[in-house]
Amino acid sequence: MKTTLLKDLKALLLPIIVYCVFLAISFERFSNLNGIYTIFLQSIIPTMTAYAVAFGYMCGIFDFTIGSRIIISGLIGGIMSSWFGLPGLIIGCLVASLVLSAVTGILNWVCRIPSLILTMALTMIYEIVGKNIAGKFSFISIDYQHAVLGASPYIVYVLIFATIIFYFLFSFTKFSYHMRAVGSDEAVAKNTGIKTQFVKFMSFVIGGIFIAIAAILTISQSGSMGAQTGLGSATLIFKPLMGIMIAIVLQPLCNITFGILISQLTLNTIFIGLIAAGLPDTFQNISLGFFLLVVMIISNNVGGSKNLLTKLHAPFVTRAETAAAGSQTKGE
Rank of each mutant, 00 (worst) to 15 (best):
Thr3Gln: 13
Leu5Asp: 03
Lys7Thr: 03
Ile17Lys: 10
Ile17Gln: 09
Ile17Gly: 10
Ile17Phe: 13
Leu23Val: 06
Ala24Ser: 14
Ser26Leu: 01
Glu28Thr: 14
Leu33Met: 13
Phe40Ala: 09
Ser43His: 00
Met48Ala: 05
Thr49Phe: 04
Ala52Ser: 13
Val53Phe: 11
Gly56Met: 07
Tyr57His: 12
Met58Glu: 13
Gly60Arg: 04
Ile72Met: 06
Ile72Cys: 05
Ile72Tyr: 02
Gly74Asp: 00
Ile76Lys: 03
Met80Cys: 15
Phe84Tyr: 15
Gly85Thr: 11
Ala96Glu: 06
Ser101Asn: 04
Thr104Lys: 03
Thr104Val: 09
Thr104Phe: 03
Val110Asp: 01
Cys111Ala: 13
Arg112Gly: 01
Arg112Met: 07
Leu116Pro: 06
Leu118Arg: 05
Thr119Cys: 08
Thr119Gly: 09
Ala121Gly: 15
Ala121Ile: 12
Leu122Arg: 05
Glu127Asn: 02
Ile128Glu: 11
Ile128Leu: 09
Lys131Gly: 11
Asn132Thr: 13
Ala134Asn: 06
Phe139Lys: 10
Asp143Asn: 15
Asp143Phe: 05
His146Ile: 04
Val148Leu: 13
Gly150Ala: 00
Tyr157Trp: 12
Tyr157Leu: 15
Val158Lys: 06
Val158Glu: 07
Leu159Glu: 04
Leu159Asn: 03
Ile160Phe: 12
Ile164Ser: 06
Phe170Ile: 12
Thr173Asn: 05
Ser176Asp: 07
Met179Ile: 02
Ala181Cys: 02
Ala187Tyr: 12
Ala187Pro: 01
Lys190Gly: 05
Thr192Pro: 00
Gly193Ser: 06
Gly193Trp: 05
Phe201Arg: 06
Gly207Thr: 02
Ile211Asn: 09
Ile213Glu: 08
Ala214Ser: 14
Ala215Pro: 01
Ala215Met: 01
Ile216Phe: 11
Leu217Asp: 00
Thr218Glu: 06
Gln221His: 08
Gly226Ile: 04
Thr229Glu: 09
Thr235Pro: 01
Leu236Tyr: 15
Leu236Ile: 05
Ile237Thr: 07
Pro240Met: 04
Leu241Val: 13
Leu241Arg: 09
Met242Glu: 11
Met242Pro: 02
Ala247Lys: 09
Gln251Leu: 14
Asn255Cys: 08
Ile260Gln: 06
Leu265Gln: 00
Ile270Ser: 00
Leu274Trp: 07
Ile275Lys: 14
Ala277Gln: 12
Asp281Pro: 02
Phe283His: 07
Gln284Thr: 08
Gln284Phe: 00
Asn285Leu: 14
Ile286Glu: 09
Leu288Arg: 10
Leu288Ala: 09
Asn300Glu: 10
Ser305Pro: 01
Leu308Gly: 08
Thr310Asp: 08
Ala314His: 15
Val317Phe: 10
Ala323Gly: 12
Lys330Tyr: 07
Lys330Phe: 05
